[in-house]
Design a protein around this nucleic acid. Structure first.
Lengths: 139, 139
DNA sequence: TTAAGTGCAAAATCTTTGCAAATGT
DNA sequence: ACATTTGCAAAGATTTTGCACTTAA
């Protein structure tokens, strides 16, 4: 399914900001931080504010999901885009050295019991440390 | 074990900022945000910056641990303080309405496999939604 | 005494808001 | 044509840094 069709299906206008950002996220298949997205050439000339608002609307529409690591940085990941799907129900690994986050696919998050009466909106698990590449660089 | 002894045991000077903040966290037994701590009367007259630095040193010394929810706010929880221990190996629940975070004790975090070669420093899981109190308030 | 910690001022980020101009349907 | 989006400027919020003063050991 095409990125532009996805937008239309969700009732969002197909603007350049949205198509570009969604395409970048779908391509990456791992959660990207605001900064990483704006660094991509396709999004290079998008205003910071526009990027924030774009990510907010994509997120509200359910086209991307949001992860926030121990570093406090928002990261967004596209999912539901056909074969490139990112189910969103898996843990993530955050490298505290290079700041890159990756999906640990194929591992479901456990069911957790919450205090009586609470409504659960979502859950997320982040494993953090140093990735293989950064460990090599250290040595 | 006394809060002041804990500091000494870790080789930290026993200053008012540290004893007060550690006492507040030990008393709360749930992760408190920077703001929640500075709101407490015992810490009311501490400088913002001092509080940040105090939390950093307590964290480095391992006297408190840090959790960061989907809201991106740092929260700190005392642990290892005798009977008030907060093991730190459990999920947390974050109410997105009132912003209060609580420990879901008695539930261990699952073991997760990470990419080969990566070094794991820690992990954390946050369940978010609306707590019972806020649901009542809504209605 | 003297190295560590604190307080104040100021900077650096990250994120949000207001409003006029541009764009999609 | 008309409601949404965008871009710019500016405001807010959070966290960090520099430096002189104070305090614990």
């Amino acid at each position: 399914m095409d990125v532009r069709d996805m937008l239309q299906a969700k009732g969002l206008r197909r603007t350049r900001a949205r198509t570009d950002v969604l395409a970048i996220l779908a391509e990456a298949r791992r959660p990207l931080a605001h900064q990483e997205i704006s660094g991509q050439t396709e999004a290079a000339d998008l205003d910071r504010v526009t990027l924030y608002r774009t990510l907010t609307s994509l997120s509200k529409a359910g086209l991307v999901h949001q992860v926030r690591g121990v570093d406090g940085v928002h990261r967004f990941c596209a999912h539901g885009l056909g074969s490139m799907a990112c189910p969103g129900n898996h843990p993530h690994f955050l490298c505290q050295s290079c700041g890159e986050m990756s999906c640990l696919e194929g591992q479901e998050l456990p069911w957790v019991s919450v205090p009586a009466g609470a409504r659960v909106t979502g859950k997320q698990m982040v494993i953090y440390g140093v990735c293989a590449q950064c460990r090599d660089a250290e040595a």
